[in-house]
Each structure stands twice: as C-alpha cells, then as structure tokens.
C-alpha cells in the first residue's frame, strides 16, 4: 500500500511538472487563491474590532480580539484541506463513462480517485497553506507548543478524513442524480455553519452549541483551530466522537459505493 502510494506520488509529481504555459495559469491561480484566503478574513478584522470596541470588553466567549481574528484566518487556511474536488472528479468520471473504461475493478478506481485527489489537495494546500499558516502564527503571535501542534495535526487529519468520506458519499450520489452541485453546496454550507467556520461554535447559545459538539463537522474547523491556538483544551472523549463518525461514514460509503458501482457497470458507463 505504501509502495503504491509512493509510486502514485511520483507519478503525480511528474504530472505536476507542467508545461510553461500551464505554469502561467498556475501562478495566476496561486496568486488568486492566496489573495482570496486573506481578503475574506480581512472583513472579520474590521467587524470584530468594532464589535469589541462597541461592547467595551476584552473577551467574547473565550476569545480576545486577537484570538478571534486569528480564528478566522486559520479557518480560511484550513478550508484548503477540507474542501476538495473529489466529488466533481467522481461525477466527471461517472458521467463521461470513464470509470467503466478506465478500470474494471471497483477497488482500483477507489485507490485511483483517492490518491489523485489527496495528492493534488495536499500539494496545493501545502504550497499555499503552510506559508499562510506561518505568516498567521507570526502576525498574531500565536505560541504553538509541540503538544498543541500534534493535537492540531491529529484533529485536522480526522477532519480531513471525515470530509473526504462525506465527499466520497456525495460523489457516489452522482450515479443517481443529474448534478451533485446542489448537494455539495449544501454540505459546504452546513460544514461551515456547524463546523465553526462561520463563527466559533462555542458562541452559539446553550443547546445549539452542545448539539454541534456532537456532530462531525467540528473536526473540519473548530477543533483543529482550537488545537492550534491552544485556547481551550480538547477532551479526549470528543476525539472518540470523531472516530465514531468517521467509521460510520466509511461504512455508509462502502455500501453506497457497492450499489453505485453495480449500477454503473450494469448500465455500461
């Protein structure tokens, strides 16, 4: 498995050595994404500055102004990891029948689609995300201990896996429906709202906040951000909730994929 992975990685690095012309659009894309990743949270700088000043407080919830602003910048960066093109790749393959022609075995296709998307996502996310994260750490003076960083990596990995499995299920749904764009947009909005990208979930009143603490989306934003800044300790029971959700999604995904693949191959692409 590891050997395959490294071989796929090598293959994709080769594909990644793109022509000069593509390099141009790549650079433009890079600049665009970089700028956008900063512009959106920039709004939050102004908003929270005014809010803190109007209420004349030093803390809202567990966040001071710097922490609050940093939260949104980190959320913006993490978005790179948890929203991928996986469902669209799958929809494209399924609609254009390239699954049936590409590979005959369902597992081989899974390996192909996951590795190609993961690697793409990883490379792109790292190229933009790591510098941005370093910049944010520096600008906001965040102290990241080793323990914090480990927890960050763990919760982020969990979040990424949950996101992937969810996206995979949605990708399978393109077998049953004309276009998954609506479903995917809906999932993105729910993940942002319930996962803490829109606003930290601890700011939600009582019951709502508690419910969000039971859902899988918190692993996509709130928990990794909190782990990184170390603003609140993360209880281990929460991690178990995450693992439980991930397992559930994997199992659901497995059954849906079986059914979907049967449907694809029976129709003949």
């Amino acid at each position: 498995m590891a050997n395959d992975f490294s071989r796929s990685a090598a293959r994709y690095f080769a594909i990644f050595k793109i022509s000069a012309k593509d390099m141009l659009s790549f650079r433009a894309d890079f600049v665009l994404t970089f700028i956008m990743k900063i512009l959106y949270p920039l709004v939050m700088v102004f908003v929270w500055t005014v809010v803190f000043r109007t209420s004349n407080v030093t803390k809202i919830g567990t966040y001071n102004l710097t922490g609050m602003i940093a939260y949104f910048f980190i959320a913006s960066v993490i978005e790179l990891a948890v929203f991928t093109d996986l469902p669209y790749s799958m929809q494209h393959d399924i609609k254009h029948g390239s699954i049936a022609t590409k590979i005959s075995m369902p597992i081989a296709y899974l390996r192909y689609i996951f590795s190609s998307n993961m690697i793409n996502n990883f490379i792109w996310g790292s190229i933009i995300g790591i510098p941005l994260l370093a910049l944010i750490t520096f600008v906001f003076g965040i102290h990241v201990s080793v323990a914090q960083f480990m927890m960050f990596v763990f919760t982020l990995a969990l979040g990424v896996l949950i996101a992937y499995s969810l996206e995979f299920i949605i990708g399978c749904l393109s077998v049953y429906t004309n276009d998954i764009n609506g479903i995917l947009t809906f999932e993105g909005l729910m993940a942002s709202l319930l996962g803490g990208a829109l606003i930290p979930i601890t700011l939600f009143p009582g019951v709502i906040g508690k419910v969000m603490g039971l859902l899988p989306f918190q692993f996509m934003f709130y928990l990794p951000i909190t782990a990184f800044t170390g603003s609140t300790a993360i209880k281990s029971v929460v991690l178990l909730v995450g693992v439980a959700w991930l397992s559930a999604f994997i199992i659901i995904g497995y059954f849906i994929w079986k059914n979907a693949f049967k449907k694809i191959t029976s129709v003949g692409g």
Partner: peptide, 11 residues
C-alpha cells in the same frame, strides 16, 4: 501572441 513562460504581468 502569447509568450510562454513569462511572468503573468507580461499578459
């Protein structure tokens, strides 16, 4: 004419 490999400002 598009020129390959130049910075994007050249466009």
């Amino acid at each position: 004419e598009t020129r390959h490999g130049e910075g994007f400002l050249s466009s």
